[in-house]
Design a protein around this nucleic acid. Structure first.
Lengths: 228, 228
DNA sequence: GCAAAAGTGTTTATGTTACACCCATGT
DNA sequence: ACATGGGTGTAACATAAACACTTTTGC
């Protein structure tokens, strides 16, 4: 075995599982494919990696091209490379997942996507390629991650109520949480800063909080472990 | 953008971080490279993915070709794709990590590797490519994983003493653990089966235990969460 | 008999769970 | 006045942490 460069190479793509939260349930952003294969089916935004481009750069580029989203939380998820996962031939895909705040929600359009839209994760249409499997892995990761890393704040507005925060955790973990216990626990985190602002609704006004990333990072360096 | 197949493609490799435990500290298996680039340097076993081969199949194949190891615990770690990570050109690498028991330890040799050997993770030679970074990620993953998944048993002989198990956790987590608390906790797991066999040394004989994977799986399905 | 690792319980502190009512607002 | 979500404390229980000495063997 010498100059392995002469080998045939798989094509390489990135795909992004974009999560959002609307106050009710967890959602994902899907693109209706314009082109074959799977034209007309729903799929995650993604596309081919360019030769001089880092993987996460490619993921951000495709995300912006296909959905207009930028400056979002993005992390590599897993690489899917089953030989038959793409009917066109060998295509290996590095999957990422992104978390976006409601105020960042996109305006669709662009490149080879014809339509973009949010779908509740528990009532999705059939997905192209192996994207159902990709989603399964992404959900598993998100559910695991949210318990020991402060990533939930990436899905909420910058200022949020404790009710929203609790609702998010309940939606992702799929179970109810005791309100008093939840509030006592988060009140002990001093990177969760209470503001002097309130939201009004058809009920008692709720205090707004924000997540102070600087304070969190400082604590983290001192060995603090987030857990909720 | 139409037939993206015409794009230039990165080359695709797999690399394996192989962990072992010798009773003292954590070790990794390195290959001394015979070929350029980095000829003579140490690197993780790995090589190019074939066109019709799944990624984990490629990782197992390279592992066996370069080290003789087979039937080991293997899991995908992360995909490294910085444009300049390989001086030959664009090479994206899907990294895996493997855990091997002392009784599986290899006999070296094969293909484009000239020499294989175990090295303590805390006193490694300089590594080729971005393998120092790969190792950092692998260690972080192993330390995280061992606390909430029963993967430690993949690094011990099939029959082991509680002293060995504790030593393993201490080596990976990098801190001492109270013997009585540790033993009480593991004694409560009924997938840790005490045997009627003992090892003798220049001290009191120690009871051997084995990990009962069937019992563990059964508990896991009922919602049990391993944590140590 | 000494060195070396195995083995064994109790107490204290900490964290987790369960649980019910009043408050402030909009309609 | 009623519906809606916001906000609050305490007791029982479970888990984690700290801590020292005896046992068995090889040399």
């Amino acid at each position: 075995m010498a100059f392995t460069y002469d080998y045939a190479r798989p094509a390489l793509t990135v795909d992004c599982v974009v999560f959002g939260f609307d106050g009710g349930g967890l959602q994902v952003l899907l693109i209706r494919r314009a082109l074959e294969p799977f034209a007309g089916s729903w799929a995650f935004p993604g596309g081919f990696v360019e030769m001089d481009e880092d993987l996460d750069v490619a993921a951000r580029r495709e995300l912006e091209e296909e959905t207009g989203l930028r400056d979002v939380f993005l992390e590599q998820l897993y690489t899917f490379g089953a030989p038959a996962r793409d009917p066109r031939g060998r295509v290996v895909s590095v999957a990422y997942y992104a978390l976006v705040r409601p105020d960042q929600h996109p305006a669709a359009g662009g490149s080879d996507a014809s339509e973009a839209g949010w779908h509740a994760v528990d009532e999705l249409p059939g997905l192209a390629f192996d994207h159902a499997e990709v989603l399964r892995v992404a959900l598993e990761r998100l559910r695991g991650k949210i318990r020991y890393q402060p990533v939930g704040f990436e899905l909420l507005p910058k200022r949020f109520t404790l009710g929203q925060l609790q609702g998010l955790y309940e939606a992702i973990l799929g179970r109810g949480i005791d309100k008093r216990n939840f509030r006592r626990k988060v009140a002990a985190f001093d990177f969760l800063v209470p503001l002097e602002e309130f939201v009004r609704g058809r009920h008692r006004p709720a205090r707004l909080y924000r997540f102070d990333r600087r304070k969190y990072r400082a604590l983290e360096k001192r060995g603090f472990l987030f857990e909720l």
